[in-house]
Amino acid sequence: MATPTNAPALRRKARHERLRTLGFLSPWLVGFTVFFGYPLIATVYFSFMHYNQIEAPTFVGLRNWRYVLEQMPLFGPALWNTLWLVVVMVALRVVFGLGIGLLVTRIKSGVGFFRTAFYLPYLAPPVAATVAFVFLLNPGTGPVNGILGHLGIDAPNWFNDPAWAKPSLVLLSLWGIGDLMVIFMAALLDVPRDQYEAAELDGAGPFHTFRYVTWPSITPIVMFAVVTGVVQTMQYYTQALVAGKLASGVSVGPGTVIQPGYPDHSTLTVPQLVYSLGFQNFNTGAACVLSLVLFAIAMAVTMLLMRRRAGLLSAED
């Protein structure tokens, strides 16, 4: 117990510790306030305003919210496409990345070559990778359809077909799977070898070894890959926009305004709609509403995945 004589000294010490802690946290606090806190508050503010980025904003109440949720015809397709990509693209990327990681870690020779070959596509800039992929899958002149035609397979129209446009984007994301491959390789190589030896002595086959040895050790990494994949796919913009523009065949020049989502709004995502509303149509209020809806969905999905009952983490993790 502190005596009356040393109580002021203890209070000064505690105050100095709090100030020191605050000093260490200050870079993060400044970054959080400038790059997250203020933009979020401003987005909420402008969602209740009519603001065209030229005139002063005027309060309109819930008019922007009613317009987006009830009257905007493209909100439903954009939200559906975004959620479809989140479910399908994230799931396939995690499964494919884990499979490639398992394959590379079990190769006896040429590991460096295969690791480099699978990782190099990830280093390609998103625009350049999308341009190359649209060229490869061009239904008229692309080599992929040419090869399929020689094999007697009826090739799809890929980015020019609304039914195949989103699966084509998924194929593009699987082509650049190098980031997840490296993460899963690190996790797989970190599994204790003695557990594999014990499973082998007990007569466990490959499936049971993966189920009871590998999987419990890598579930935190799977959780990380799923959560970050959901957040990134909720912001999916560049590849879908570039693929739609190139597949449409419309030349892009100064002053050209192209509506995203080709073909037939099948590649339209919510981030594209936010950009179109905010910077092409200067409807900042509706764009802010869309941003808040996207933020709320991303937060809800992330919180759901972070719960232990989601099944990705065991109780002892």
Rank of each mutant, 00 (worst) to 15 (best):
L85R: 08
L85Y: 15
L85A: 05
V86H: 08
V86L: 11
V86N: 09
V86Y: 07
V86D: 07
V87Q: 09
V87K: 10
V87E: 01
V87W: 13
V87P: 03
V87D: 08
V88Y: 09
V88F: 13
V88W: 12
V88R: 04
V88Q: 09
V88I: 13
M89V: 08
M89A: 07
M89F: 00
V90C: 06
V90S: 00
A91Q: 08
A91T: 15
A91M: 09
L92Y: 04
L92E: 05
L92T: 05
L92K: 03
L92R: 01
L92C: 11
R93P: 00
R93K: 12
R93F: 00
R93C: 01
R93H: 01
V94R: 13
V94N: 12
V94I: 09
V94E: 09
V94P: 08
V94M: 06
V95G: 02
V95T: 08
V95C: 08
V95Q: 06
V95S: 05
F96K: 10
F96Y: 15
F96V: 13
G97V: 09
G97L: 13
G97M: 12
G97C: 11
G97D: 11
G97I: 13
L98K: 01
L98M: 12
L98S: 01
G99R: 07
G99V: 01
I100C: 12
I100F: 14
I100D: 00
G101Y: 09
G101N: 06
G101P: 07
G101S: 10
L102Q: 04
L102N: 00
L102D: 01
L102V: 02
L102S: 03
L102R: 03
L102Y: 06
L103H: 01
L103N: 02
L103Y: 04
L103T: 01
L103P: 00
V104S: 14
V104T: 07
V104L: 15
V104M: 07
V104I: 15
V104Y: 09
T105C: 02
T105R: 13
T105Q: 10
T105P: 03
T105G: 03
T105W: 06
R106T: 07
R106H: 07
R106Y: 00
R106F: 02
R106W: 04
I107V: 13
I107P: 02
I107R: 05
I107L: 14
K108C: 01
K108P: 01
K108W: 09
K108S: 14
K108Y: 11
K108N: 09
S109D: 02
S109F: 14
S109I: 13
S109H: 14
S109C: 02
G110Y: 08
G110Q: 07
G110V: 04
G110C: 07
V111S: 06
V111G: 00
V111K: 15
V111W: 12
V111Y: 15
V111C: 04
V111M: 07
G112L: 05
G112P: 04
G112E: 10
G112N: 14
G112Y: 06
G112A: 15
F113A: 11
F113P: 05
F113I: 11
F114K: 06
F114C: 05
F114H: 09
F114S: 00
R115V: 05
R115M: 04
R115P: 01
T116A: 15
T116F: 13
T116M: 15
T116G: 15
T116D: 13
T116V: 11
A117T: 06
A117G: 11
A117L: 13
A117V: 11
A117W: 04
